[in-house]
Structures are given as C-alpha cells and as structure tokens.
Nucleic acid binder design. Sequence first.
DNA 1: CGGTTTGTTGATCTCAGTCAATAAGTGTGG
DNA 2: CCACACTTATTGACTGAGATCAACAAACCG
Lengths: 232, 232
Amino acid sequence: MQSAVQNCVTCPVRGPHCFCNLSPATVQELQTIGSRVRLRPGETVLREDSMADRVYVVCRGKIKLTASSADGKLLIVRIAGPGDVLGLTSLLNNVRHKVTAETLEICDLKAIGRADFLAFMESSRDVGRSAAVSIAWEYEGMLLTARRLATSSSAAGKLATALLDWGRMDGAGGESLEFRMPLTHEELGSMAGLSRETVTRLLGKFRREGLVELDGERMVLPAPAKMESLYC
Amino acid sequence: MQSAVQNCVTCPVRGPHCFCNLSPATVQELQTIGSRVRLRPGETVLREDSMADRVYVVCRGKIKLTASSADGKLLIVRIAGPGDVLGLTSLLNNVRHKVTAETLEICDLKAIGRADFLAFMESSRDVGRSAAVSIAWEYEGMLLTARRLATSSSAAGKLATALLDWGRMDGAGGESLEFRMPLTHEELGSMAGLSRETVTRLLGKFRREGLVELDGERMVLPAPAKMESLYC
DNA sequence: CGGTTTGTTGATCTCAGTCAATAAGTGTGG
DNA sequence: CCACACTTATTGACTGAGATCAACAAACCG
C-alpha cells in the first residue's frame, strides 16, 4: 500500500497540459481536498449517462474513454493518463457523462466532489485557467479525431491516421514512431470506424509494405511520413 | 454605423455557455480591452494553420467553422454564434489554428490580442472559469460530432443524426423541430461525411417518408423521435 | 482441459461514391 | 427584359470498397 501517489505537493506529474500544473499555494490546497482512489485494471471510473457529481484527476495509470451509440457501437475517445481530468466537461456543463471510463492498468485517482471542485475553482484564479487549458487540449484531440473520421474516405486512411495520431500522442517524436499498442483489432476498429476483419487485413497489408512492425504489444511505424503521404 | 454592439456592459448576450457571462466588474474590464470588428458575409475571421495570436468574441452573427484534410475535404465543425469565442483553444495550447472561420452573415466581433487576453485571464478569476465552461461546451459538441461520424454506419444514419443534432442546437425543443438550414447539400455532406448526391437522395427519401419538410431555408423535422429510432 | 476471446482468410453482397446528364435556381451585365 | 454564366439540386447507371457471413487457427484463462 506504499506506492500510491499520496501527495500533490511532491507529485512529479506536471506536463504542459496537466491540470495539476498550478501555483505552489494552489497545489497545497488541492492536496487538502478530495479523496484518493486506487483501481485495478478493468474497473469503471465513470459511466455514460450517469450524473457528473465529481471529477477525477488521474495520478497514475492509463484509462480508456469510450462513447457508445444507441446500437452499441463504440468510439474510443482517447486514452487518458496522469495529469488528465475525467468528467470535467460534463460537470461544468451540468449534464450527464457522455463517455465511459475504464482503467487499463492499476490506477491512482483523486476524486473531488462537485461542490468541492467548484469552490476550489472559485478560490484560486489559476484553477480556472488550468481547467481551461486542460479542456482545450482535450478539445484539440477530439477535433483531430472528428476530422480523421470525416475526411479519410478510405479504410486504409482511417486506420493509418488513427495509428499515427496514437503514435504521436504516445511515443517519442523521432523519425520512426514506436509505442505500446494495447488495443485489440476490435478496439482499433472502434477508433477508426472499421470492422475487426478490415483492421486485420489492413495491418497485414501495412506490414507487407513495411509501414508497420508488430511484436506483441510493441508497435513501430518506421516511416510515418511515407505512411501519411500514401494514405492520409 | 449605429447598430454595432458597442458596449459589453449593456450587451444582452448572456447565455449559460456564453463566454461573456461574467461578473459586472469583469465585464467592465472586458469592455476596456480589445477592438471591435465588423465583417460582411463570406469574410474570413481566422485561417487554418495560421498562428493563434488573438481570440475573437462573437457579438453578433453566425460563423461557420470548418476543418480541412490534406486532400481538401471539409468537415464543418460547428456554426458559432453570439457569445462564442473563436481561437481560444489554439491560443491556450499555443498551437496553430486547426479550423477556418468564415462569416455567414454580417458579424460584429471583438478581437483581443494574445497578451491582453492572457493578462485579462490572470486579472479576474471568473475569466478562467468562463473560458473553461465555454470550451467545455464546445468539447461536448465535438464529442457528439465524432461519435456520430464513428458509429453511424449507414449514410441515412449519419445524415439523420447530423440534422437532429443541428435542430436540437438551433431550434426550439418542442415535439417537432423547426429551424433554419442555410447549408447547401454539399455542406451538409461535409458535416455528415457524405457526398452531395447522397444528401440529395436521402433528403428526398426522408421527405417521402414524412420525416423532413422543406420550404426554402426552413426545415422541419416533424417526428424526431421516429427519425432517431429508425436511423440512428 | 474446454470455453472464450482474438486473429486470419475467403466468398459474397450491398451500400454509397463516382461519373454523367439535366434541371432549376441565382445573379450579372448588356 | 433577356442572355449568359455559375452555382445548386436531382436522377440514373455503374462500380468498387468494405461490411458481413462463415470457417478456422491461435492465444488466453479459469
């Protein structure tokens, strides 16, 4: 039980789009509110259509966000990581959640009730700013997703763009992109709006063309530029 | 030249997701910064790939936001109206614009330079909050768009969902949705990810089925629930 | 072990994109 | 007012990409 991130003040998670990127005084205050939660892989953090009565700050682990349509088809919205906030947009809009969040790994979260969070936002001016930056970052990602879905006409284009987006978000920014790909073909299909079988076929094609290398969960895109020019 | 909205303090635009929904003192300050711009229909407010060096608050008129892919296909992101802010997410993320904004009518805008806006945000705590709420609202809309694009498999589903989304955003919330539809078939196609011809065919089909009534720019969806259950 | 999820490949079929031709509307200038 | 150009809408025919169905292999797991 020692390894949970216990202290916002000493926590090293401070990316540029990280919600916790606050002034020292405000971090102190953040430390005093909310409660810590530890979840095992596969647990549900928040559920579509439920009321947004609290927000969760991700301290450790990755969390899959999905949105579903009436007939059960899924869209993988994004994979949230440390520094992200879950449920914030729904809470601010005072509407029900439109996404389901499910842990992929062991996760540490900080849960903050609605009233506490709003009070926190009123109390320090950098909270609103940080929330805005955080949501703005999510928004830009969502925009890329929507554009990809709307404008890539071919299945190859959709899958290639989805892989490139993922790799650029997750991996190092070198010439060849290398990253973990924990999703099944079915889930990749959900991201790109394709069927499971089509994902299999296309990955095979990409591999034969030398655009994708696969080794278990490890995925490498050796020539992202070429991939983009060919299919996107 | 009298009709331009000249004063933030007396301006009546104060929706729940409106950026200008600020405390009186902050509105006073807003009034003192930035400069007013009037644009005619069809003019460009901001351009994809340009730097986000200012934000625009929409005071009057409607503005079409589009995102384009490498091969020139368009996605209509949304139609912005009074109280919306343009360019805010790009400015906060310090990246180039990912959308192009073009006026549909005569528009009054308030332009605020990057530095001024950031200073404004630092000066009053409700600015950050209001910005966060504003972006959160855009985010939710973007999420709906992406979900629609990803999960509606059939063309009819995509178009029906696009029309329903549009009507619910724009029109009254009664049993039958009635609203202005200023978009051409081509543009509707861009919203839903369809070709122009398919839009024509589907609108004809919907009309024959009594799901859509058209009279010039006026569009009525007499049975949104039925439409949703049939196609979404 | 058996059962379930995941990956792979082939065959078929349908939906919607594309091409083409035409009509209808809209504005412009003579 | 008409001729003209241009945009937008409409309909038909064709075709191809990808979903679906089906069968099976491989991995995973209690």
